[in-house]
Write a protein that binds this DNA or RNA. Structure first.
Length: 265
DNA sequence: AACAGCCCCTGGGTGC
DNA sequence: TGCACCCAGGGGCTGT
């Protein structure tokens, strides 16, 4: 379940391998992952990668000519890696991009939720996203404005990409634990002190996770060490690190949710 | 506008 | 041992 730290780590790794490379061919083995497969096949070959960046959970591949931008969203199980053509066949590599140095960029996605887009203007997609949590536009004032009219559970709002771009189930739970806020609380019930604590917690959790190259979980994403630092996610019935009360797993907004029933109010 | 609920997928886990 | 079933989870979509 790649979230902001895992996507950021992926972008940093791929940047070294992709910038300056030119796309030769695109092979689509499951075209449904690309909303416009024809455009991808005809427009991408010949373009050079000028830069890689991230917006929320989107990987952004900047191109020359610049009238198209390649976006990749990993969703649940997507993985993006550069490999030699001779690397072992991966049955889940649904989209394979041939590069001008003989290597391949492979988009592998067991559950097929991920998406690849080739767009004229990525701002059409980014306009739906809230601010980057590590940017100054994401501030307690802005959070309070978004929470003011919302009765839904605060956890559910943290997962909305229009509120803040990049949080997923793991780091939403971890942020709420660090801020000592019950994930079921109506968003509008948080006072300004609690919003400030949550703001600080989100930034601290994400920064720590990026520093440790994300969380390796299941077969989905590997490489990071953050899983050993998680305080609640995946720790059902294990003692809370603050008070030793067993961590609970409940369901909030149809998502598995982990909390300390004593520390989080 | 806000929100609940369903859907897409697959492989791992569970229970019989 | 084998097999049917259930579930996770991001986000788009529909219906209320």
């Amino acid at each position: 379940m790649p979230e902001l730290p895992e996507v950021e780590t992926t972008v940093r790794l791929l940047r070294r391998e992709l910038v300056g490379r030119r796309f030769l061919r695109v092979s689509l083995k499951w075209p449904r992952q690309c909303p416009t497969p024809e455009d991808l096949r005809t427009e991408l070959p010949g373009r050079e990668v000028t830069a890689l960046s991230r917006r929320g959970k989107f990987i952004v591949v900047h191109l020359d000519p610049a009238d198209r931008t390649l976006l990749v969203h990993l969703r649940m199980s997507g993985q993006l890696s550069v490999q030699p053509e001779s690397a072992p066949f991966d049955p889940h590599a649904h989209t394979v991009f041939s590069l001008d140095d003989g290597l391949e960029l492979r988009f592998s996605d067991t559950r097929k939720f991920g998406r690849v887009y080739l767009l004229r203007d990525p701002e059409d997609v980014f306009a739906q996203l809230g601010p980057e949590p590590l940017d100054s536009a994401f501030c307690p004032k802005w959070m309070r404005e978004r929470f003011r009219t919302r009765k839904r559970a605060i956890k559910t709002l943290l997962l909305e990409q229009s509120v803040v771009a990049g949080l997923g189930n793991i780091y939403a739970d971890e942020s709420l634990f660090r801020a000592q806020i019950d994930p079921r609380r109506p968003a509008s019930s948080l006072n300004s002190r609690e919003v400030r604590a949550l703001h600080r917690a989100i930034r601290a959790v994400l920064e720590e996770a990026i520093e440790h190259q994300g969380t390796s979980f299941d077969w989905v994403y590997s490489g990071g060490e953050m899983q050993s630092r998680l305080k609640v996610y995946g720790r059902k019935e294990q003692p809370c690190s603050r008070c030793a009360t067993p961590i609970q797993r409940i369901v909030v907004g149809q998502r598995g949710t982990h909390l300390c029933p004593r520390c989080q109010r």
